[in-house]
Design a binder for these strands. Structure first.
Lengths: 92, 92
DNA sequence: TCCACTTACGCTCACCGTAATGATG
DNA sequence: CATCATTACGGTGAGCGTAAGTGGA
């Protein structure tokens, strides 16, 4: 599992469509599809239902989405915090 | 930034020593040292002070450590939660 | 001079994109 | 047959390990 996989998952969950999510991530469909498959494989359970219209979250996917958003938010917070502390006057 | 980098950072912060952290992670020193350097480069500020004894956290490193632990804990929680939901009787 | 981190360097394999294939209404 | 997702496949770059280099007490 990698942060890239998590970002890919969130994009697909929000778009409900691998193609649109791929454009949003500036990526082509196959690698993005592979990210989702790898995640499902690693977690041992499907996260999406495949429909003719695209991808629909399963309950396991809904649960993962909440955690995924928290992880990404925490990463952003870490970056902001460190940049602030690292530039602080008490650097010495 | 990747989860691997974050795990590497936590190990070095806890051991205070790249060599020991590397053994703990089943990795050799150079890649681990590169993880830390990449992290510092990406964040734009050093996280450790290099001493003759090893690595000592700077204030920016202390701040990052708290976030890093939360990120890794959240990842673990995500995995556990999804595995539980994915195996639940209401899988239909 | 020892000890620890870092840089050099060659190699492998993970990952991307294009193209082909499957699946479903 | 149109629309998505997935699999095949070749090429490149990220990342590993061994070995050499650097720096401080």
């Amino acid at each position: 599992m990698s942060l890239t996989h998590i970002q890919s998952f969130v994009a697909v969950a929000e778009e409900g469509h691998v193609g649109r999510a791929a454009r949003r991530l500036h990526l082509s469909q196959p690698p993005l599809s592979r990210h989702i498959l790898a995640l499902e494989d690693e977690l041992g359970t499907p996260l999406f239902e495949r429909t003719p219209r695209g991808m629909r979250l399963l309950p396991a996917g809904e649960a993962f989405l909440q955690h995924a958003r928290r992880i990404l938010a925490e990463v952003d917070a870490a970056v902001l915090t460190v940049r602030k502390v690292g530039t602080a006057p008490t650097e010495h």
